[in-house]
């Protein structure tokens, strides 16, 4: 792989890697550092890349491993939900509706952040990034069964909580 194909093929996945790293490390600055390190590793291991079937999943896996390393080295548990702000702009919505949506999204954010780590990763990879089950297996180094179980649990935990919110308005 030469520099040009690195630039046109590999670099564009930076946002996916960034979002994934962000799920682990929690701060944008650190996530950026992780992604930078991932790219340098990918570049240094570019000879290997021809043997890798799905290089994007490979990049994601490196991102995951480096993110975990970073968390360990900082010796910090990511228990606090990430403060994310959402800029929801739908022209069809009134300001009131827009605020309401914003609030419910904050709730969902907290809800997903409270999931166990694996479930959080799986739901992110599937529902945000749209990876296939096979790719998720490769990224997280899990077997198909584990991936499906984790996704099922994650989605159902979310669903239950959403139903509670609906029923009691919590």
């Amino acid at each position: 792989m030469n520099l040009e194909s690195f630039q046109t093929r590999v670099l564009p996945v930076k946002n996916k890697l960034f979002r994934f790293a962000l799920k682990f490390v929690g701060s944008e600055e650190e996530a950026k550092d992780v992604v930078q390190e991932v790219f340098i590793r990918v570049w240094n291991g570019r000879e290997q890349m021809n043997e890798v079937q799905n290089w994007e999943a490979w990049c994601m896996r490196i991102t995951r491993n480096l993110s975990l390393d970073r968390i360990r080295s900082i010796n910090r548990k990511q228990t606090h939900p990430i403060e994310e702000s959402f800029n929801v702009q739908h022209e069809a919505l009134t300001p009131h509706e827009s605020t309401e949506i914003h609030e419910s999204m904050q709730r969902i954010n907290q809800l997903i952040a409270s999931l166990p780590e694996k479930q959080r990763q799986v739901i992110h990879l599937r529902d945000v990034e749209g990876y296939s089950y096979n790719e998720i297996c490769e990224i997280l180094e899990l077997d198909m069964n584990q991936v499906k179980v984790n996704l099922f649990r994650a989605r159902n935990a979310v669903r239950e909580k959403l139903m509670k919110i609906n029923a009691y308005g919590l």
């Binding site: 929801v88 999204m105 945000v128 990034e129 959403l162």
Partner: peptide, 24 residues
Amino acid sequence: KETAALFRYFEENKKKTLNDVAFD
């Protein structure tokens, strides 16, 4: 309503990008 919020949350999450022009 809440389910919609969940799916919007996914969509919004996907919009998050590495905000750094000098990154590349």
